[in-house]
Design a protein around this nucleic acid. Sequence first.
DNA 1: CGTGAAGTTGATATCCTTCAATCACCGTGG
DNA 2: CCACGGTGATTGAAGGATATCAACTTCACG
Lengths: 257, 257
Amino acid sequence: MYDVAGAKKAVPAPDSGLCDGCRQGVCALSHLQKDLPDRRFINLAKGGRLEATGPYDCMQFWIVTKGTAASCTTFADGRRQIVGIEYTGDVVCGLMSAPSTQHWLEALEECEVCQFDLTRRANALRHDPEFLAATFAIVHRRLTVSQDRISMLGRLDSQERVLLFLAELVQRHTALDPMAPVTALSMSREDIADYLGLNAETVSRVLTRIKKSGLVKFLNRTEYVMPDFEAVRRRVPVEIPMPHGACNARILMEAFK
Amino acid sequence: MYDVAGAKKAVPAPDSGLCDGCRQGVCALSHLQKDLPDRRFINLAKGGRLEATGPYDCMQFWIVTKGTAASCTTFADGRRQIVGIEYTGDVVCGLMSAPSTQHWLEALEECEVCQFDLTRRANALRHDPEFLAATFAIVHRRLTVSQDRISMLGRLDSQERVLLFLAELVQRHTALDPMAPVTALSMSREDIADYLGLNAETVSRVLTRIKKSGLVKFLNRTEYVMPDFEAVRRRVPVEIPMPHGACNARILMEAFK
DNA sequence: CGTGAAGTTGATATCCTTCAATCACCGTGG
DNA sequence: CCACGGTGATTGAAGGATATCAACTTCACG
């Protein structure tokens, strides 16, 4: 997708969706300057929350710089839904749902989040084409991901959902780190369930069924391998989403540095 | 503003979400100039389709100028999911999911759609702050709607989904046309089912249950009233979304006229 | 080890789907 | 004008899938 300056694109057919920087782990995140007044680093323990309180004009946002978090909602009666998983490099902007719905960012594991507050520069940025294009790209990408998840939640059964989820993690980790032999599954059954619109027991049952089928082999409770990725792909009626690493963050960083 | 857990949350003023123009029915749509070379009006009969063809750079889009359409996807095995309903005034941009997934706009009733092709002006518009801000606003709004639908599909049961759907239509029609006594339900059971992640028989069953409960009264198969909107609101654990009329179209029109 | 939290498994209930039959509506053609 | 046929809607019966509740196991960590 993003060429190295001058170099020819090498066999672009299967496109991992990652810029070369992301693939090499030297993307925008590593050059984030920590000492500027508009940014603040927040460490979240597993389960820690960051709540949205408006105003919702997208002049504040958060980049997950370490770990994995989740955009969560709950209803009054306690039902919880994970609207999206925010991996390292993902950019979360303030307005994620109606202001009245309870909505927050929750660390699924040890996390570091960089909070940007651009309200002081808002008037300038609102007319800055580069900044606008960057935020557009980010929101646009989030929209396509969300829409695919609508189809997933509306029409896939539990086994398809879990398989798709596991395959997505594999895809993600092989794109970022092709050498790593196993994929980590750091989320709890409860979290997976809330992400997939199921409950924890169902996730557990489906997981054992998948283990027995041989499509996925678990080394322990949090690491697995997928011996035949193609077989999994055939079992799932949708495309397995490509990760986008820290590209979003990079785009944004370049826009308003 | 985001705060660490525990901070107080701002209570938003009740806002119908409509610009004055939309509320008075004299919004951008009525001044759409029909004879410019970059736009083309398309009439769709019920069930008619408009398929998205690349490239997916959002330099092509469609405004629903009459009627109601749906952003649809299907899987290889025929399962269909309506990703979103596009009411009059909604702006649909080309890339709505991964290019490989089958995805199209389908008329739920007699429709008129205005297709804009800005590819010839793309290079200029890519740096035009006003245009960028407008497309950002549109995509951003679509994202919030999509994320609420994720919660709906993941966590609401069939009755809650149908009630929410009916309430949303009522809300929409009272905001646009407070004098109209009844709300029209022009979608077929099949369409409603594909929108709510159910099947047609379930929708039918739930509707008769809702009728019996008295929450909704049907005058005939396609018109209903909701005698006690508050009672419905109490039955549904989420906010009932506000319509946004032709505001999106207006924003866009002003940006690149 | 001991303890608590997370995960697994089983029994059962509930919800939703599937399949099939019937009904209601609507336009068409005799 | 009315019989006819087609399509969508409704309803019923049965089955399947997922949720719920409860018991038990495993694991992490002191």
